[in-house]
Structure formats: structure tokens, C-alpha cells
Write a protein that binds this DNA or RNA. Structure first.
Length: 1097
RNA sequence: GCGCGGGUAGCUUAGUCGGUUAGAGCACCCGGCUGAUAACCGGGAGGUCGCAGGUUCAAGUCCUGCCUCGCGCACCA
């Protein structure tokens, strides 16, 4: 049995407390113990989204981890078995770039020269650069996750599971090889992800050209516009909008002031979108014909560079095609289509059967055979040549009009992506790529998404749903070095094999070797990375050598495999996997919508035909105090240690959770952490200290004494009811992900109800040296409040409450039961379903008494009202009033003494005669009045409000005889408001709402008597002496010698002198008469014209 | 351009079914109180509820348009 007798609390030092606890947790193995203690509980499966450890962790990582931890701890306290395996994302471009920068290997050639093996080794090492920083942050913030046995995406077992998954897709026909147009840098020989492209947008001015495409069997030309003249040799089609209106316009006269090259002859006919005619054409024209785009579809035109692209068997090459994405916002309403150099172009080309041939090599130069003046030249240097070729009489193909094929050139200013390493413009370039046919499983994706409980729901329905409804095939390959290699081998005829395991690889290698193909040995522990896997040559079914497709996989694929690859499924851990899929809970930033949230679902759908997760908490972005996104480049990342080392992890975590809804962007404000520390944690500590210090002093032991709740004073029953109500609301908010609301309300309860009312009102109860039942009641109450509050706070801020709970109960709060029940421990329960009633039966909360809560709310309200009255009447708080009256309202008899004390009133009485102090005013109740009075409502309301004699009107209303503007006014059409009669110090409060609304007034008697003046003075003197005691740092039980002189003072009664003596623990006291001069070392003060001197020794 | 989410006091924010005096906290000022903690209580000042229309007897709340910030998507031919 644990020691349950609290020790004195001591001063609060968050950092010291937290670091000491971290040590204790470590030596006790507290995290593992908290799981172990629930080993028979129902499982709640959490999946950690793996961070990459090659960047320093910032405060935004702390936020995500706080929410992960919060839910896991909460579920653990509910009795669920919540294992938390850590994970690391270790592959991918960010790692490569980091290494490239460090080693100055800024191109693929450089990497290959350096050696792929060496390079990948460098990546492998680089991955762990900040691992210890992550570990320290994770431990310090008390994110409980198993970092000693994490899954690591670069490990062979993990990669093997990814290979297995890939093979499942391959076997289902969901994996295919194709082209994808990607932003590509010929200098470095790499394509870029959209993230990198975003880094390199630059505003540039480039020549854009309007080109005439001469129709066959027609004198007219179709006009198209492009900002990339180098794509023109690759032109194989023109796209028009089927519903766009086009015109055929004839040039009627030469244009004046022509700038630049190009032009048109009088009589030439040009086709373009009607809407853009004015903007594009510099000549005067006459419109010959109008037609929709659909009328142009199928027309053939002369290729600009007939040599550049072979027709092949294409029937649609060099014809007009329709595309619904063609707009008339710029250009000519006709889009020049070069299949290999634009994404839309490529998709259109594939759909329409255009020939798909490159005119540009991987080095960025025109391929031989494009045009004699262009072959072998870097495309960006050819703009001028192309313009000249087009402008020549007859144009570049010699079949155009005499005026040439160029109509106009125009400098064009736009944002264009550039290589962020070499600064060269990127080329959109069609490249070999592998895809997962996500479009084939779109319906399943949508179904599974509907099954997910999203928080907030609009991310699931909106953002994520939108993404799925527009799902495209997943380009999964990257022509890089450091990643999970694509396990596909291919021969020169296009025969392919996808390898799903090491064993299979070994078998295939053996087969190849048997057929005479040389191969390195393939041991069981073969490293599944480049270049090792590239070294194996396999044998196709037709006996041809097969080489590995030289790609690695998108690293998002790796993390998408986490649910099974973390267990090395299907090779190991079958049970582990089967029992934990789909997972119950994931939680990451909203930026993972297209990232991890998607790839998890994409992989689980294609491989298992199941969803990957049941619940997903999508967190808002973390912004700095100015509302700017935190980023390395802005340098506005907050270092979590700034707060860990100042206010501590508890305050940091509590701040994060209470600052706003989890899914809303969080403006991280350092002052807010400070505020949380001072308000929430300091207050809670002081409540605890108050209890613990007296409990220690009195030897209080909750196990050895008893105090029945129903026989405790109403103040105790009130705070316990508030505790139960707060806990219920807290839990209800947790269930619907409203952690912010839950925690704000709990904080309010702690600060307002417990500290500012209960403890303040109870302070004197514990001062009593004797063992009274009242003191015991207070101690038990405080004990119950604190142990419950500790458990509620523990999932969010796990440190301080554990220290408190340990001292109060001898046990750790992290193995304590959730006060609202422990469903996870019930027979047959799962994370999704449990017996609510049986779970509730395990709850441990005091009884609720809503009536009592309402009454106390009123008492507190009246206490505030009383102070307001005093301020307004200019009567100081310490000068008592002889009498106070409460006018109407519920019975509060049992709280009259509290009120009397709060208000410093001798007696409180109830007065039912309203008219004695007050009169009424009437106010219209619009909700009731409006339907009856309709448009007259304002006029009627005005007459009610301004009634000369409201009492008389109300009497008429009650009698049913009050009619205004034809409307019969009934009682519920008006509200009665009370105002004070002239000459009374009173104030009125409204409680309740709607029909239950009630007004209660407080009236104070402001007349003085000698007795009151004496008492008031005594209180003032006492207060000054107490302050002096405090400033002298005297022990509470120390006694003093007291001397007091007064001048111009009211007579002080003997009983009040005695009161001063006992209150201030004076062993000896001398009250000098007013004729005696005060000692020169006496302190002095003045109150209401009375001067007082005193000495304390 | 499309979608999602915001815009309420100097700052952080609450505001339910539309109901007539928009509520807190921080900071500021005045006063009070304190063996009560970096506290507490009362009061003050501080708001065109992003802008403009509309619906309604009544709009922070509902509708339309616009401005603006954030995020995502698309485009940049």
C-alpha cells in the first residue's frame, strides 16, 4: 500500500520539477509501466507519422506531438492498451539535397562520379543528424512514444514490406509505366517536385510569339500564342475550346508603327477567338465568319517544322483538337500543343493519339533532325533563330504565306520556375515514370474516406474529399538515388517482373545465373538500396536479360506503407499487423492532407482494399506571433527549449491546447505561454500547496478518516458538484475533439471556482488547531478536488499533476483511472464500441446538485454586486454596514453568513416588499411581442418602454386590460426591470434566462453607528499590522508586542480591541489614549480622517 | 481562376435557434481588498463586429457581391 499522507508542498519551480520527474519516470520505466498496467485492456491503435530527423525540431513539431500524446494518454487512463511505436522517415529528396549541398555534388554526373554507393552512405549517415535533438525534445515535452524500437524506412525489413506492397499493386495491374511531364533542369539532370519548384519561381521577361498555322485546303491560318518558342518544333496539334466563339478575319489594310518581326499581308485570313481579336490583331480586319470551336475540330494544318516529328501512325497529328480547358483569358484562344512539353499537352496528346516524340534531349539541346539550324543547340538560346525562321517568306516550312508564319512577337512578363540551384529556367519535359492507377480505385477511396471520423469534419469532406474526387494516377517513381528502389526489372522488349521479397530476388537471381547471366551473390541480408540492387540482372520469360528500372520510389510511398511495414508484414509480425489494422487514430498537420493522409489511404486501398485509419485529427498550421508561417527561410521558428527552460513543458502544452481549436491555425505567442504558466499552473500549485501544507501539519490521511459528502457544509457540496459538472463537460468535449474548450473550462473552474472562491472562503477552516469535523470536511473536499483535477489535466500536461498526485495518493497519475469511467477495461470492449453504461458505472465523481450550483452562482453574483454598491456609495470595504436586504429571489438562508462576511454587513435579511426600495420599469420582450404586433412592434415597444407609470401599466397587463395600438399586451410580452428608488444604495442582478429569468436586488444600509465605526477602525488597524507581520517575515504562529496610538478616532470598543489582539497574535498590546504622543519609530496611516500609529515588536 | 478556413477592443479571443446594452483574458488608468499566489474584487477607457448591399419588426449571426489574410488545388498555353 502506498503512502497516502501528503507532505508539505514547497515552492514551485516548473523546470526543476519537470526535470526531476523525467528522471523518476525513466528509472521507473513509467511509460512502459503505463502500458503494461493495461495489458488486458482493449487495444487503442495509434500510428505515429514518421518525422525526418535531418532537420531540427521546432515548436510546430511540439504541437503535433502534444495532440498525439494527449489522446494516447487519455485513452490509456480510460483503460485501453495504447502502444506507441516511434518511426523515422529516412528516404527522399530532402536528404539527398542536404548531402549534395554539403558535399558540393550539384548534378547527377557529380553524384555518379563520386559514386552512388558513397553518396547513399552519406545520405544514410545524414539522416540521423538531428536524431538526438528530436529525442531530447520528445523526452523533454513528455511525448510518450517508443523511440528505442522505432520503425525506420531505410531498414531492409521495412523496404522489403514496401516491395511486397508494390508487387501487390503490380499483380493487380495497378502499377504501370508511362510518361509524365515534369519540371526538369537539364543542367543538373533532375526533375523537381512541386515543393522545390515553388522555391525557384522568378519573374522574367521572355519573347512570346503569335504564330500562324496555315490550314491545308484553306487560305486561312489559325493563330496561336506561346511563351516558349522552343516548343514550336514539337508542335503536333492545336487545341480550341469547343464552346468558344472564333472568327475568320481578313486583313483589310497594312498596320502602322509595326514593332518587331512578323506581320501579315492585306487579304490574308486569320482565325482566332473573337473575344481576343482586339487585343491580338494589329491590323484592321473584316470579319468574314463566326463559328464555335467545335466547327474547327478536325481541320489539318501544315507542320511548322516538317522534319522534327515523325507522323507515325497518328491520324490526328497536325489537326485541330478540342479541349475544355482552353480559355480566352490570354493568348488567342488557340493553344499550341507540343505533346512532350506540357502536362495538358501530354494528356491531350495521349487522349487524341498525337505522336509522342521528343525534339529536345535530356541535355536541353534540340535533337538531331529537328532543323538544320537548331540541331544540337540549347533550346533557350534558340528563341531568336526560331523567330527568324518563322518570319522568313513562306515561313519555316516554306508552305506559309509570303508574309511568313510569324504574326507578332511580344515581350511577356511572367513568373516562371527556375532551378533553385543553378538558376536556369526549368523545362517541362515528358519523362519515363511509373504510376499507380489511383483512378481505378477512386470509388473505394471515397467510400473509405466516408468511414473515417475526421476532425474537423470539413477537412475530410472538403479538402480531402475534393482531392479524392479529382484523384489522378500517382507518379510514384523518382530518378534519384536515395530511396526505396523500384523493384521492377525489364528487358528490352518491355517484359517486366516485379520482385516482392528478398527470397524472390534470390530465386530470380539464381534462375538468371543458371541461364548464364553473371550476377553478384545475393545474400539474405542483401542491402535493398542502390546501387546494390541495380547490380542484379534477371531473366525474362523469353530468356532475355532484365535490368532494374533505375528509379527509387516517392518517399511518401514509404510512409504510406507504415501500418504494415512497421511490423515487417507479411514476413513477420502477422498477428501484430492483423490486430492493428486499420489503426484507430492518427494525428498530423493539415499539410499532410495530400501527403501522409493520402498515401496511407492510397496504399491501404490498393493493397488491402481497406481504409488505413478510423480517426484522423488534422491540425492547423503553426504561425508566428505575427501570423506568418513558421519557416526556416523566414527565421521565425520558435525554439521549444526557450519555453521548456522557462515556463516548462506543462505550460507550453497547456497553452497550445487552450490557444484555439486544434484544427485552426495557431498564432504561437510566447506571452501566452507565460500567461498560462502564471494563471493556470501557479494557481493550481498554490491550491495544492494550501492543502498539502495543512494536511502535512495536521497529519491528514484520507484513508484513515472519513467525511460523508452529504453531511459536509454546502460550500463543500457546491464545489464537489461543480467538480463533477466540470469533469462531465470536459469529457464530453474530449469526445468531440474540443480539447481547447474542455481545457479552457477546466482552467476556469480551477482559477475561479476552486481558487478564488472555494479556497478563499475555506482558508479559515484550516487555521483551526483543533480536529473539527468542518476542517476534516474541507480537507477531504480539497483532496477529492485535487486528485480528480490531476487526472483530468494529466493527458494534456503530465508533469506537475503527477508530482501532486504522487504526494497526495502515493501513486502516479499516469496509471490512475479516468474519473469518468474506464471502458477499455471492460470485457469485450474495443476502441470503437463499449458498454457506455458499464463504463459510466466505473466513474468516480461526487454527486451533482444543479440547484446548489445555481444558488451559489447567485451568492457570488450578489457579493460582487455588494462591492459595486460600496464603490458607488464611497464606503470603504472594512467599515461594516449594519444591515443588508436581499429583495426576492430563492432561499439562500444557508449562505447569508458567507454574504455577510463578503459584504462586511452585520445582518442580512430577506425583504419581499419590492416597493420599499425599488420601482419597476417595463421592457418589451420582442420574441413574444413581434409575432403579435408585426410591423407595429417598434411603436408598441416604444410605448411600453416609455410608460409614465410602469407599475400601473403592469397592473393593467396582469388584469388583461392593457391594449396598445390594438395589441393586447400579456405578461410574457414584457420584462420587468427593477431600478432603485432614489436614496437607496442598491443594485439589481438578473439570473437565469427566458421564462426562468429572475431579478434579485441587494440593498445596503449606509448609516453609521459608533459600534460600526469602532469595528471598522479595528479592521483597518488589524490589516496594517498583518501587512507589517508579513513584511517582517514572521512565522504564522509567532507572537508580537503591540502599541497603538490614534488621533481624531471614533471610540474603540473593548471587544474590538480584543479582536485586534487575537487576530494579530499579540502577546501584549497597549492602546494609548489620544493625548499621548506616538513613539517616533511608529508607523502611521490614515483612514477616513483618523490617524493611527503603531509599533510591532 | 476554383475550393476550404479566417477577419469581433492595442493583443489573444467567446458569441447557441437572428431578439434590441457584443462577453472574457492580457496590457493600460482609477479605486478597493489581502497572512491570498506572478493573486483577487469593483470601476474606467478602448468596438463602424473587414467593406457594401439585401432579407427581416430585428443581423456579429442568414443571403449576395467585394476587400483582405492563411492554406490547398489549378493555371502560367
Amino acid at each position: 500500500m502506498a503512502m497516502a499522507r501528503p507532505k508539505s508542498a514547497g515552492e514551485f519551480d516548473a523546470v526543476e520539477l519537470e526535470t526531476a520527474l523525467l528522471e523518476a519516470w525513466k528509472s521507473e520505466n513509467a511509460f512502459q509501466q503505463s502500458i503494461e498496467s493495461n495489458r488486458n485492456g482493449a487495444p487503442f491503435i495509434f500510428l505515429e507519422g514518421p518525422p525526418t530527423a535531418n532537420g531540427k525540431p521546432g515548436i510546430h513539431h511540439v504541437v503535433a506531438r502534444a495532440y498525439k500524446d494527449l489522446v494516447c494518454r487519455w485513452k490509456t487512463m480510460e483503460g485501453f492498451k495504447v502502444e506507441r511505436k516511434g518511426g523515422w522517415d529516412t528516404h527522399g529528396l530532402p536528404v539527398e539535397i542536404e548531402v549534395q549541398k554539403r558535399m558540393d555534388l550539384m548534378s547527377n554526373e557529380a553524384i555518379e562520379e563520386f559514386g552512388m554507393e558513397n553518396f547513399n552512405q552519406a545520405c544514410r549517415d545524414s539522416v540521423w543528424t538531428y536524431e538526438s535533438a528530436w529525442r531530447e525534445m520528445t523526452e523533454r515535452m513528455a511525448y510518450w512514444v517508443d523511440l528505442d524500437n522505432p520503425y525506420v524506412t531505410l531498414e531492409n525489413n521495412y523496404v522489403e514490406s514496401c516491395w511486397w506492397a508494390m508487387k501487390q499493386m503490380f499483380d493487380k495491374g495497378l502499377l504501370y509505366r508511362g510518361y509524365k511531364v515534369l519540371p526538369y533542369c537539364p543542367q543538373t539532370g533532375t526533375s523537381y517536385s512541386s515543393h522545390e519548384v515553388a522555391l525557384g519561381y522568378k519573374e522574367v521577361e521572355e519573347p512570346s510569339v503569335y504564330v500562324k498555322f496555315k490550314l491545308i485546303d484553306d487560305s486561312a491560318s489559325i493563330l496561336a500564342w506561346t511563351t516558349t518558342p522552343w516548343t514550336l518544333p514539337g508542335n503536333v496539334g492545336l487545341a480550341v475550346g469547343p464552346d468558344v466563339t472564333y472568327v475568320r478575319a481578313r486583313i483589310t489594310e497594312q498596320a502602322e508603327n509595326w514593332v518587331g518581326q512578323g506581320g501579315a499581308a492585306v487579304g490574308e485570313e486569320i482565325i482566332l477567338a473573337k473575344e481576343l481579336m482586339k487585343e491580338v490583331l494589329r491590323h484592321n480586319v473584316e470579319i468574314i465568319e463566326e463559328m464555335p470551336g467545335s466547327a474547327l475540330v478536325g481541320r489539318s494544318y501544315e507542320p511548322l517544322f516538317p522534319e522534327a516529328v515523325p507522323r507515325g501512325d497518328s491520324k490526328t497529328a497536325w489537326t485541330v483538337l478540342e479541349a475544355d480547358w482552353v480559355t480566352t483569358t490570354d493568348g488567342t484562344g488557340v493553344v499550341h500543343t507540343a505533346v512532350m512539353y506540357g502536362e495538358d499537352d501530354y494528356n491531350l496528346g495521349m487522349a487524341a493519339g498525337l505522336p509522342a516524340y521528343h525534339t529536345v534531349g535530356m541535355d536541353g539541346a534540340f535533337l538531331t533532325g529537328t532543323h538544320s539550324e537548331l540541331d544540337g543547340r540549347y533550346v533557350k538560346e534558340c528563341d531568336q533563330t526560331i523567330i527568324e525562321l518563322l518570319s522568313a517568306p513562306g515561313g519555316s516550312n516554306g508552305k506559309g504565306p509570303e508574309s511568313g508564319l510569324l504574326y507578332r512577337e511580344k515581350a511577356y512578363l511572367h513568373d516562371y520556375p527556375h532551378c533553385w540551384r543553378t538558376d536556369h529556367p526549368l523545362l517541362y519535359y515528358a519523362m519515363d515514370s511509373w504510376f499507380v492507377r489511383m483512378t481505378a480505385v477512386k470509388e473505394r477511396l471515397l467510400e473509405f474516406n466516408n468511414e473515417v471520423e475526421w476532425a474537423p469534419d470539413w477537412v475530410g469532406e472538403g479538402r480531402f474529399g475534393e482531392w479524392l474526387r479529382n484523384v489522378k494516377d500517382w507518379a510514384i517513381s523518382r530518378e534519384r538515388y536515395w530511396g526505396t528502389p523500384l523493384p521492377v526489372w525489364r528487358d528490352d522488349e518491355g517484359n517486366m517482373k516485379c520482385i516482392g521479397s528478398i527470397t524472390e530476388l534470390q530465386q530470380e537471381v539464381a534462375k538468371a545465373v543458371a541461364a548464364g547471366i553473371e550476377n553478384p551473390v545475393c545474400p539474405d541480408e542483401v542491402d535493398l538500396h542502390r546501387p546494390i540492387v541495380d547490380g542484379f540482372t534477371l531473366l525474362s520469360d523469353n530468356g532475355k536479360p532484365m535490368y532494374r528500372e533505375p528509379f527509387v520510389m516517392d518517399c511518401w510511398f514509404d510512409s504510406g506503407c507504415a501500418p504494415f511495414a512497421q511490423w515487417h508484414h507479411p514476413f513477420d509480425g502477422g498477428e501484430k499487423f492483423n490486430a492493428s489494422f486499420p489503426v484507430d487514430y492518427i494525428c498530423e498537420g493539415v499539410d499532410q492532407t495530400r501527403g501522409w493522409f493520402y498515401t496511407l489511404l492510397a496504399v491501404s486501398t490498393t493493397v488491402f482494399d481497406k481504409p488505413a485509419y478510423k480517426r484522423c485529427l488534422s491540425l492547423g498550421l503553426i504561425l508566428d506571433a505575427e501570423g506568418k508561417k513558421m519557416s526556416k527561410s523566414r527565421g521565425n521558428i520558435v525554439d521549444p527549449w526557450d519555453h521548456f527552460n522557462r515556463e516548462g513543458a506543462d505550460a507550453t502544452r497547456w497553452y497550445m491546447v487552450t490557444a484555439g481549436a486544434p484544427w485552426n491555425p495557431l498564432k504561437f505567442d510566447s506571452n501566452g505561454v507565460r500567461e498560462t504558466y502564471a494563471k493556470m499552473f501557479l494557481t493550481l500549485w498554490n491550491i495544492y500547496k494550501f492543502h498539502a501544507d495543512y494536511a502535512a501539519l495536521d497529519g491528514f490521511d484520507p484513508e484513515l478518516s472519513e467525511s460523508k459528502v452529504e453531511s459536509r457544509p454546502s460550500l463543500d457540496r457546491w464545489i464537489l458538484s461543480r467538480l463533477a459538472t466540470t469533469a462531465h463537460n470536459y469529457h464530453a468535449d474530449f469526445k468531440v475533439w474540443n480539447f481547447h474548450k474542455a481545457c479552457r473550462d477546466l482552467e476556469d473552474f480551477i482559477v475561479n471556482d476552486v481558487s478564488n472562491w472555494y479556497v478563499r472562503r475555506s482558508r479559515r477552516r484550516l487555521w483551526d488547531d483543533a480536529e473539527t469535523t468542518d476542517k476534516l470536511a474541507c480537507q477531504h473536499t480539497l483532496h477529492e478536488i485535487l486528485t480528480t483535477v490531476c487526472r483530468l489535466v494529466a493527458p494534456v500536461s503530465p508533469f506537475m499533476v503527477d508530482t501532486m498526485y504522487r504526494n497526495l495518493t502515493g501513486e502516479t497519475v499516469h496509471q490512475a483511472a479516468w474519473p469518468l469511467g474506464i471502458p477499455g477495461s471492460l470485457e469485450g470492449a474495443t476502441a470503437d464500441a463499449w458498454d457506455e453504461e458499464a463504463a459510466a458505472a466505473t466513474a468516480v465523481l461526487p454527486p451533482q446538485d444543479m440547484q446548489l450550483e445555481a444558488t451559489m452562482a447567485l451568492v457570488r453574483e450578489l457579493a460582487e454586486v455588494g462591492r459595486r454598491i460600496r464603490v458607488e456609495a464611497g464606503r470603504r470595504q472594512r467599515l461594516p454596514c449594519s444591515q443588508g436586504w436581499i429583495v426576492s429571489g430563492p432561499d439562500m438562508e444557508e449562505f447569508h453568513d458567507i454574504l455577510a462576511e463578503e459584504l462586511n454587513v452585520e445582518t442580512i435579511a430577506v425583504e419581499n416588499d419590492l416597493d420599499r426600495f425599488q420601482q419597476i420599469e417595463l421592457a418589451p420582450n420582442f420574441r413574444a411581442l413581434a409575432p403579435k404586433a408585426r410591423s407595429e412592434v417598434n411603436a408598441v415597444a416604444g410605448e411600453i418602454k416609455n410608460a409614465d407609470d410602469p407599475s400601473a401599466m403592469f397592473a393593467a397587463i396582469q388584469a388583461g386590460t392593457c391594449e396598445i395600438r390594438g395589441v393586447n399586451i400579456e405578461e410574457n410580452d414584457v420584462e420587468i426591470r427593477r431600478v432603485e428608488r432614489e436614496g437607496f444604495a442598491a443594485s439589481t442582478v438578473m439570473i437565469g434566462q427566458g421564462d426562468d429569468a429572475q431579478q434579485i436586488s441587494l440593498v445596503l444600509d449606509m448609516n453609521d453607528t459608533p459600534a460600526l465605526l469602532s469595528k471598522g477602525l479595528a479592521r483597518d488597524i488589524t490589516r496594517r499590522i498583518q501587512a507589517k507581520r508579513k513584511s517582517l517575515d514572521l512565522a504564522i504562529e509567532a507572537t508580537i508586542d503591540l502599541e497603538i496610538w490614534t488621533q481624531n478616532a471614533p471610540e474603540m470598543f473593548e471587544q474590538d480591541r480584543e479582536w485586534i489582539v487575537t487576530e494579530t497574535r499579540a502577546a501584549a498590546a497597549v492602546f494609548h489614549s489620544s493625548s499621548e504622543a506616538p513613539s517616533s519609530n511608529a508607523e502611521t496611516f490614515e483612514v477616513d480622517g483618523t490617524s493611527v500609529w503603531f509599533t510591532v515588536q
